[in-house]
Amino acid sequence: MKRERLDSSSLASAGYDPAAHVLEVEFHNGGVYQYLEVGDEEYEEFRAAPSKGRYLNTEIKPDHPARKLTSPRRRR
């Protein structure tokens, strides 16, 4: 899935598959997650949110199943 860079302190990029209703998010720490059953309107609200990290934490994570694609990088 193609992701767009975000201006966010916690999120590096995000992409959306409208046919599958999947929001894919890459965190600055390298972790990539897909949030399932995210509607088009909800994705547009996420994109328009002044704090995308806050929106993800309060509106997406509590209500949508997620799957981890890659784990966060470990700090050395």
Rank of each mutant, 00 (worst) to 15 (best):
A14L: 13
L11Q: 13
K52M: 08
D40P: 13
T70L: 11
N57M: 06
G31D: 03
P62R: 07
Y55L: 08
P50V: 12
E41M: 09
D17S: 08
D17Q: 04
V25R: 02
A12I: 04
S8R: 10
D40T: 14
S51V: 00
E45A: 15
V22R: 09
I60G: 04
K2Q: 12
R75S: 11
G30E: 06
G39Q: 03
L56Y: 03
G31V: 09
G30C: 08
L23Y: 01
Y55T: 08
G53Q: 10
E59C: 10
D40V: 14
T58Y: 02
V38M: 05
A48W: 00
G30Y: 08
D17M: 06
R67P: 02
K52S: 09
R76F: 12
E59F: 07
Y35I: 00
Y33M: 13
Y33C: 10
E41S: 10
S13A: 15
S13V: 12
E59Q: 14
R74M: 08
R5S: 13
L56W: 01
V38D: 04
L11M: 12
Y55R: 03
I60S: 06
A12N: 06
L69F: 04
Q34F: 01
Q34P: 01
L23D: 05
Y16W: 05
E26F: 05
E41N: 08
